[in-house]
Structures are given as C-alpha cells and as structure tokens.
Amino acid sequence: MTDFLNAIVALSNFVLIPGAAYGAQLALGALGVTLIYGILRFSNFAHGDTMAFGTMATILVTWGLQSIGISFGFLPTALIALPIGIAITGLLLLGTDRAIYRFYRKQKAAPVVLVIVSIGVMFVMNGLVRFIIGVGDVNFADGARFVINAREFKEMTGLDEGLALRSTTLITLVTAAIAVALLFWFLNKTRTGKSMRAFSDNEDLALLSGINPERVVAVTWLIVAALATTAGVLYGLDKSFKAFTYFQLLLPIFAAAIVGGLGNPLGAIAGGFVIAFSEVLITYAWKKVLVYLMPENLEPSGLVQLLSTDYKFAVSFAILIIVLLFKPTGLFKGQSV
C-alpha cells in the first residue's frame, strides 16, 4: 500500500499538478485565439507574441513597483502589476486594429489575407519585445515559493516521495478559474457579451439589429488582451519569461483551440488540458512511478520515456494533424462563440 501511495505522489508531483497548471495556461491562450476566430473570423498568428508583450509590460511594471518598495507579501508582485499590463496590451491591440486590421476589415478582405497580415504583426511584436527586454531568461517570481515542499510532506506522511506544490501552480489554477468564470459570465449575462455572441452567430442580422460592429471589435480585442496577458504572466511565473518561448507556444495554443473545436470557448478549455496532459504524459520518464508499482525483478532499467522533453511541441503538432485529418471540427463541434 505504501508503494502505491508513493507512486500516486510521484505521479501527482511530475504529471498531474504540472499538467493541470500548463493546461490552464494553454486554455487561457486558446480562449483568446477562439474569440478572435469566432468574432473577427481569422486566425491570429500574433497571439503568442501578444502574450509575450503583455508579460513584458507586466514585468516592467513589476520591476517599477519593486524599485519603490511595493510588494505583495507571500504572493508575486506581478499580480499587482497584471491589471496595468493588461491595460497596456489592450491599448496596443486597439492601436494595431485601428492602424492595420480595420483597413482590411472594411475592404472585406478574405480571412487568409488577415492571417498573412497577422504574421507580419507577429514579427513586429516579437522584435519589439526582444528589443525592449532582451532575449535571455527573466525570472520575475517573488514571494513564497512553495505552498508545501517535499520535506514537509514527507514529515507529515512518512512516505518516501515528497509532494511539492509551488505557489505559482496554485495561483495559476485559481486565476485561470476566475478568468474563465468572468469571461462566461460576461458573454452570457451582459448586454455587450450578448451583442458579441449575436455578431458571431450572424454578422448581417446583428448589424440590422443595431449592434455597433466597431464596439464589438474593440471589446473583443480588450478581452483578448486580458486573456493573453494573464496566460503569459501565469506561464512566466510558473517557468520563466523568454520572448522566443511565447512564439513557440503558438503551436500548442492553436492545437488546443483546434482540438477542442475552433470558435468554441468550452472546446478551447478542454483542448488546452488535452494538449497539456498529452505533452506531459508522453515526455515523462515513467521509471520513478513504475519502480513503486512493479515487482523488484521487473523494475525497468531505462527511463521508460516515449519521447524526450525536447520533442514536446512535436506532440502538439502530431495531435493537431490527427484531429485535422479525422475530426476537423474538433472534439467539441467548432461553432460561433
């Protein structure tokens, strides 16, 4: 029985808890992608670098607060800076829409044209972030590091395996849950949210009903700024910030949105966790768990790892290809918001 409990703790420590935190981060990112697709009707390839920009803005504000002696106690100071980072990112996205996307929208450009335009915006944003904050790793997490550490867990339980629950993991799960609840409340209960859903369902009918399309577009970009910045900051606190990492995150985020059903917010959340746990399960070295579960003479000598962690993004790509081939509408049928 003790060996079984040790196996459960090891599995939780290295698979379940990290997978849940990573899934929440991907889900928030995928929600931004699916909102743009459902309402503005194009795939925004600049979304990863929007996350990077929002995180960079939050980091700079965090440094400013720390320089004048402001902190958040045992919580990361970045949580205080997050609303300001969201506001700065919102202004950037509104400015980008007014300067670039609105022209093509008025010209009734094909979605593929907007996709190409978003790729150009992506490169500009990526270069801007690298120019301002650099290309190296930035660790901006302060406050308490652990809710419970491995040594304390071992002392409490007497098990050989120690469970370490990092504060950033708990913050990620709680913040993501609050953000998702607020988003669904806004879309379903407020007049503006209902206007956005109507615009997504039938643009022409929404216009005939007196809905202001520019207001819908502006609110969409502001929500996307909030989701992207929150996802980026949570990912940066959980790991560390590096501009190019967010460019790479675009693949698992799009995979999550498409696997769940592009244009479906519930699908984006489900897709985020599917992609996250797939990456973690396939790249995890199972020896540590199997040693507790298997007889001593059958214990594995190797790592029992299907793929190296260097190939975790290949897992996202493979799942994306499989879904596009066999169920292109996603696990949840892709539909409007």
Results as ranks from 00 to 15, higher is better:
N126G: 11
L26I: 04
K327H: 07
I100C: 01
W286N: 15
G23F: 02
R41D: 07
N297R: 15
F326G: 07
V112I: 13
L173W: 14
T168D: 02
G38W: 01
L266R: 09
A276G: 11
A226G: 02
M122F: 12
F123Q: 15
Y22W: 11
G32C: 09
Y101E: 02
P265T: 08
K194W: 04
L234M: 10
F74T: 11
Y104A: 10
F53I: 09
T172C: 01
A46M: 06
L307I: 05
F184K: 14
I223N: 00
K154C: 02
A87G: 12
G236H: 00
W221T: 12
A206K: 04
I148S: 00
A21S: 14
V147P: 01
L92V: 15
A314M: 13
F146R: 11
T190F: 01
L262H: 04
V61C: 03
A21V: 15
A198G: 10
T157L: 05
F184Q: 06
T175F: 00
N44K: 11
I148G: 01
L60G: 11
D137I: 15
A27S: 15
L205P: 06
A225Y: 01
E279K: 13
V337T: 09
A256W: 00
G95A: 09
E214Y: 07
V304T: 13
S43R: 09
T230D: 00
L293C: 11
A109R: 04
I322L: 12
S278M: 09
R215I: 06
D142G: 08
G90D: 04
S12V: 09
M51W: 04
A87Q: 06
A218D: 08
V180P: 08
I119P: 10
A78S: 13
T172K: 03
V259M: 03
F140K: 10
T283W: 02
G54W: 01
L208P: 05
I148A: 02
L173G: 10
L262I: 15
F247H: 06
F313M: 13
T192R: 08
V233L: 01
L227C: 03
T230K: 01
S12T: 11
Y284A: 11
I275R: 00
I39Y: 00
Y246S: 01
K312L: 09
L207N: 05
S200N: 07
S167M: 13
G64Q: 08
D97F: 05
A218M: 14
L187V: 07
L331P: 09
P328M: 06
G162I: 14
R215K: 14
Q66F: 09
K242G: 13
I39R: 02
E296P: 11
R191Q: 14
K106G: 12
K154P: 03
I68A: 08
L320Q: 14
L306W: 11
N212M: 06
T50G: 05
V224G: 02
L205V: 08
F186R: 12
T245M: 12
G23Y: 05
M196W: 01
V61H: 00
V217K: 05
A198M: 12
S336T: 14
G90M: 00
I100H: 03
F317I: 07
L35I: 10
A21T: 15
Y235N: 11
V304H: 09
T55Q: 00
I133P: 04
P111C: 06
F153I: 04
I258C: 03
F103L: 08
A24N: 13
V274M: 03
G85N: 10
T168N: 05
L262V: 13
L222M: 14
F103W: 13
S240R: 12
E161H: 02
I253C: 02
